[in-house]
Each structure stands twice: as structure tokens, then as C-alpha cells.
Simulated scan of single mutants.
Amino acid sequence: MRSIWKEIKLSSVLLLLAGSALLAFGLYNVHSISNVTEGGILGLTLLLEHWFGISPSFSGFLLTALCYFLGWKILGKRFLVFSFISAIGFSVFYGIFEQFDPLFPQIGEMPFLAAVVGALFVGISVGICVRVGGAPTGDDALAMSLSSVLPVDIQWIYLASDLVVLFISLSYIPLNKILYSLLTVLLSGQIIGIIQKIRLPASLGMADIY
């Protein structure tokens, strides 16, 4: 593990933290107040927050940790280190954002806008983290692991897990808003898939892991 730390570039760490901060910002300021949820672990954390009052800063980290073992076995120690950085970053940043009132409270009345803006936050932020080689949430770890062993693009793996959580989310989110949620997971998954295919200079620390 010590040799792995020596290989990590500062640019990689900064990108992971930037992606985690953007993800926490979007989840708190858009998804959590609009009921336009994400699928996967992100959507599950919002479901737990709604029914049990459990903060995503806690549940997100715990559920992600449960998925790390699979990623470590398939993708190796580098994945584990990068995921640890991004997951800790997400929890810390979400905890910080919770200390302030949401910046866009009116977005809760505009579900279409929330769906699109939320998709941009999640797609770009998660896309950055996954492109570097880290998983800020458990569904990212699962998608990265499965996409490395299955002949399926990562965006379709995201979609499958998202649909399961969205179905469960019907327990507290009206059907019309679930349709907006379906829009946001479709868009965010495609954005993540696009970012994975962008060729960038190696100096940025972006890893070609697939």
C-alpha cells in the first residue's frame, strides 16, 4: 500500500476532492429539496434521510464502504485508495453544506429544471471521480467493477441499478416526480459515460481504467 501512495499525483487528489465537493453540493442543494432523486446509492441515501432522518453524510459513507470490497478485489489497491479519498471528501463536504440553508430552495417547485441541473451536477462530478479512478459512492464502485468484467458500457450499469432504487422510491415520491428522476438518471449516466471516453493528458491524473 505504501508504494501505491507514492504513485498518487497531487492533481489526482485535487480532482477527486473537486468532484466530491461538486457532488455533495448538487445532492444537498438540488436533489434533497426537490424530491427529484438519483438512483443507486445516492438515491438510497435520500430515501433513508426521508424515512429515518439519517444524513447522507453518514449513510453515503457507510453504504459505499460495503461496496469497496468488490472494487478492491476487481480493480486493485489504487481503486481503494482513490475511492477512500473521494468518499471521505463527499461526506466532509456534505456535512459542511448541511450547516447552511439551501441556495436554491425554489428549485423544489421546478422539477424539470431540478432534473436537468441535478443530472449535470451528478454526471460531471461522478464522471470526474470515476475517470480518475475513484468511486465517491457505492453504486460508482459497483458500476466501475462490473464495467471492467462485463461487455457493457458503464452508463447502462448505472441505469440498471438506478431503476431498482427509483422503483423503491415510489414509496415516498409521487409517480410524476419519479418520471423526472428517470430523466435525471438517464442524463447523468450518459454524461458519466461521455466523460469516460474523453482523452485527456496524463499529467491531469486521469486514468484509463476500462
Rank of each mutant, 00 (worst) to 15 (best):
K9L: 09
K9D: 05
K9F: 06
S11Y: 06
S11V: 09
S12P: 09
S12W: 07
L14P: 12
L14I: 15
L15C: 11
L16P: 14
G19I: 14
A21P: 03
A21D: 03
L22Q: 08
L22P: 13
L22D: 09
A24G: 08
A24L: 08
F25Y: 11
F25V: 13
L27N: 12
Y28F: 13
Y28L: 01
N29L: 01
N29T: 06
V30G: 08
H31R: 09
H31M: 06
S32D: 11
I33K: 08
S34F: 09
N35W: 13
V36P: 12
T37M: 11
T37S: 10
T37E: 06
T37F: 15
T37L: 10
E38L: 15
G39T: 10
G39E: 11
G40P: 15
L42M: 12
T45M: 09
T45E: 02
L46A: 02
L46H: 08
L46R: 06
L47S: 14
L48F: 09
L48E: 04
L48D: 06
E49A: 13
E49F: 15
E49W: 15
H50I: 07
H50T: 10
F52M: 03
F52T: 03
S55M: 02
P56E: 15
P56W: 15
P56H: 15
P56S: 13
S57A: 14
F58C: 00
G60I: 04
G60F: 02
L62N: 03
L63D: 05
T64C: 11
A65K: 03
C67A: 14
Y68D: 02
F69C: 01
L70D: 00
L70Q: 01
L70I: 10
G71D: 08
W72T: 06
K73W: 12
K73N: 07
K73D: 01
I74F: 08
K77P: 09
R78M: 07
L80P: 00
V81K: 12
V81N: 06
S83T: 09
F84P: 09
F84G: 14
S86C: 01
A87C: 02
A87T: 14
I88S: 11
F90L: 09
Y94Q: 07
Y94V: 03
G95H: 12
F97G: 04
F97R: 07
E98P: 00
E98L: 04
Q99E: 07
Q99M: 15
P102L: 00
L103K: 07
L103T: 02
L103S: 04
F104K: 04
F104R: 03
F104H: 05
F104C: 02
P105L: 03
P105R: 07
P105K: 05
Q106W: 15
G108N: 08
E109G: 12
E109F: 13
M110Y: 15
F112V: 05
F112K: 07
A115Y: 08
A115T: 07
A115C: 01
A115F: 04
F121R: 08
